[in-house]
């Protein structure tokens, strides 16, 4: 995935069963953002892989004051890349294990 300066990781182990999963997001490189992020905190949230979109969550983070509105796309892309990896793993790895 492209280095966006915003890191997104699983905040819990993925057993491939729940559609909702906990993710943790933090800024690794503030210079890649257009605006100043709120602080250096890691933001933990749940994301529903079936019902929600990364764009929705990124918009809510902007509205909650974590990021400048000009950074909504880079935050959404960071979440989208991680979600794509989680879904890739679920489709290819979990059927083999089970």
């Amino acid at each position: 995935a492209e280095d966006t300066g915003v890191r997104v990781e699983l905040a819990e182990e993925d057993h491939g069963r729940k559609s909702s999963i906990a993710l943790r997001l933090w800024v690794e490189d503030p210079k890649k953002l257009k605006g100043k992020p709120k602080d250096n905190g890691a933001i933990e949230f749940t994301f529903d892989l079936e019902k929600e979109t990364p764009d929705d969550v990124a918009q809510e983070m902007v509205e909650s004051g974590f990021f400048h509105e000009n950074d909504v796309k880079i935050v959404a892309k960071s979440i989208r890349d991680r979600v794509a990896l989680i879904q890739w793993r679920r489709e290819r790895i979990w059927p083999i294990i089970q």
Binding site: N40, G41, A42, E63, F66
Partner: peptide, 27 residues
């Protein structure tokens, strides 16, 4: 505690905690 919780009007809960120094890229 150093945890902060922010609830968006749509209902999503954001829990903010400090990022360990080891996880931050060197500036």
């Amino acid at each position: 505690s150093s945890l902060t919780q922010v609830v968006h009007s749509a209902g999503r809960r954001f829990i903010v905690s400090p990022v360990p120094e080891s996880r931050l890229r060197e500036q």
